[in-house]
Design a protein around this nucleic acid. Sequence first.
RNA 1: GCCGGUGUGGCCCAAUUGGUAGAGGCGUCGAGUUUAAGCCUCGAGAGCUGGGGGUUCGAAUCCCUCCACCGGUACCA
Length: 862
Amino acid sequence: MENYKAQKIERKWQMYWRDHNVFKVADRPEKPFFNLTMFPYPSGKLHIGNSMNYTIGDAITRYKMMNGYDVLSPMGWDAFGLPAENAAIKAGAHPKVWNAKSIENMREQMRRAGWGYDWDREVSTAHPGYYKWTQWIFLQLYNKGLAYKKAAPVNWCPSCATVLANEQVISGTCERCHAEVDKKNLAQWFFRITDYADRLLDDLKLLDKWPEKVKKMQENWIGRSEGAVIDFKIESTGDIISCYTTRPDTTWGVTFFVFAAEHPLVEKLVKGKPHEKEVMDFVKRVKRQSIIDRTDETREKEGMFLHDYIINPVNGEKAELWVANYVLMEFGTGAVMAVPSDDQRDFLFAKKQDLPIIPVVNPPDRKTPITAEEMEEAWCKPGVMINSGPFDGKHTPECIPEVIEWMERQGFAKFEVNYKLRDWGISRQRYWGVPIPIIYCDKCGEVPVPEDQLPVELPMDVEFTGKGENPLAGSESFVNTDCPKCGAAAKRETDTMDTFVDSSWYFFRYLCPRMEGGAWDIEQANRWHPVHQYTGGVEHAIMHLMYSRFFMKAFHDLGLTKHVEPFGALFTQGMVNKVAYKCRVHGYMLDNADGGDDGKCRKCGQKLGVKSEKMSKSKFNTVAPDEIFEKFGADTMRFYMMSDSPPDKGLDWVEEGVHGAARFLNRLWDTVAAYAEQLADAPTSMGEVPPDPEKVAALRRKTHQTIKKVTYDFEHNFQFNTAIAAVRELINHMRKAADPDLPLPAEMAEPVREAVESVVVLLYPFVPHICEELWEKLGKKPPLVNVPWPKYDEKIAAADEVEIVVQVNGKLRARIQMPAGSDKDAMIAAAKADAKVVGYIEGKNIVKEIAVPDKLVNLVVK
RNA sequence: GCCGGUGUGGCCCAAUUGGUAGAGGCGUCGAGUUUAAGCCUCGAGAGCUGGGGGUUCGAAUCCCUCCACCGGUACCA
């Protein structure tokens, strides 16, 4: 018998799949199934996260094909972005060249992993044939008023020299380089995603096949709140200033009023006043504070009195006007009515600045009204309104609608819904991205590039200096152009788009990747969408998925698709972790396998901390798929990743586990090959051992139970670890029932054949190479994707005899064998008759008899 | 802080949703095979299910509370 040679058979089948176009899918499918995995950034090397993603995706592709679906399984490249440009700066190569090479490498790695794709549909977002349509989409949004330019304070990463979206700022630092992010005022392009806030929120209800977790994250990010906008009058100037509040019921408790440092009225109010310098110095200081400082909640709240007052519209009371560092310009109106009795931030500020506190909500269990002196913190829970004029005695927050109505009648407030979601800033001051198709003309102003002039291509005559300036701005041939309207000399926009724009519509382009007359064919989109299964990392739960949903809805409104949601079902895989070794003083280091000693720091000798953490180069705990392919083969990597833990949770990468996977595949090989030989000998004699009907039935039962289990796991959240465990059980059972190295007894030949074939078919989605090879050894015709997924027979799978547990007062006292499906009376009677049970119930009163069919009997006695 | 999630043999994890705590794997130990080790085959042990309280005939599962870790988010008025 030949040994299992992974690399040899893997290459053989990879060539087979390619040469036979196994994963090519028809444009007009009978049973369409769009199986999408998140396309990678072509960094040049697959990382383990990709491998996890695509191994899950490939298992689904093959499973669905075996179930008769026309599976669309495409692959492409999210090819624009910073790393290519940075690499270009470093290596002196053009990003285009660097990119092409990276893609080639990764395509080869994907082949070696054995993932099945329809390569005729490959797309790259950096290809002019693709980004032409990204620009076209920009123009459609622009014409609809959904793309606009405005000067806005933006997150500026000084190290990357570019603008970052809010979502790319991780607690005040750049998500890429971790430098502290500054605020900068720049003219920027935005997409009006906020117009869709309510629909993005409401339609989450349609996504019943999305993880609750992801929907919740999106809900939080959209951050819908209801409240009122209330107008206050400034005493000195008579200016009306509005503020948004979710608690208009507490307006009687307003004791001061606070502006954000960026609020334009601040400067106006102090202009020429004695305290002008003091206040403006404070404003400047706050503005200069980094985002890190400003968003650190534990930091002291500071502020300055503006020596001016506000008139509270509900009762005409005066309240001091302040500017403070804890109010954000970005939310609401940048001005806050402060109710220290009901808001902990206002409370702390009032205490610090010695401002008055008026309780307006009385804790419900109190008989007498609470006083300001009694309060140790703000009361923001439900209660009874006090000191609130006409609303005294009412319960809040229930009466908020009534309060708003009352205010609206008086004309100084109105109901309003607010969102945390901001418009999507897409401008990037970088070369390696999609040029924004806008031209600036002195006479005509901002002019969109006519559609027939697309694409606006990236110029090649650029210099990569690594300095802050966008290289595009330095390209004469690019910048200088003619105005499409009047023909006069004009200049091009030099900002490029955020790469999330590229990836927000790629699932359309896969449908018609080479189409020239349009971005996609609407009929095809209506047919293949929404994506039947989308699989990717949970790190894209907010940005990518939100932007794609927004695009889908905008496309719908533009008549470009009939659908409103892009992804019907979503599966998010967990992170891949591995132990990392960390010294408290000297940081992460290689583990002790590499020259270290007994887990001690090589620099200081202190004991290293050992903890499983997300794989990262900086932690020295990465694993390269390539190395696994070389050492063990792709099937081993695939098997290990799928067999160890449920894929939606994380995976702890353990070297021994990989060995275990390799061992299993060897055993699978030996076992199936041995059975193949025995089966080929087609035994006819009964042998010396007499036939054993129960043994035959038991093996068949196990086979059908296993098919049922694996099918169930595919249909329920992809619990591949338990599916694989079930197959292992079947193999163990079969080996015990019929020694693979001995001639098969005649009566076992068919049951064994059924079991062996099932094993190979059931494992195929996970380890396709070895299974194709074994399938051939069994005398069958490849490829396995054409073999129908096995059906199980419920009758064969059902046990005819079951073990019933007998409890007395909840304690296990006996086990009895009974025919499956016995009725409750029979079970109870049998339980009472059991000799062991009798000892426990004799002479006692049976209070209650519980029977669970085929499971247990519980007798409650006194 | 707030919103999610997780906590089960030494380790990764099952338990078809309230019914025997243990499927599968890793590691360990033992036996067989081997000149020996490894590989391979067969077998074994190991637990108050994070702590406490409650509901129930019965709780890993449901409820309350606390703790630990992971993820998201964060002065959003």
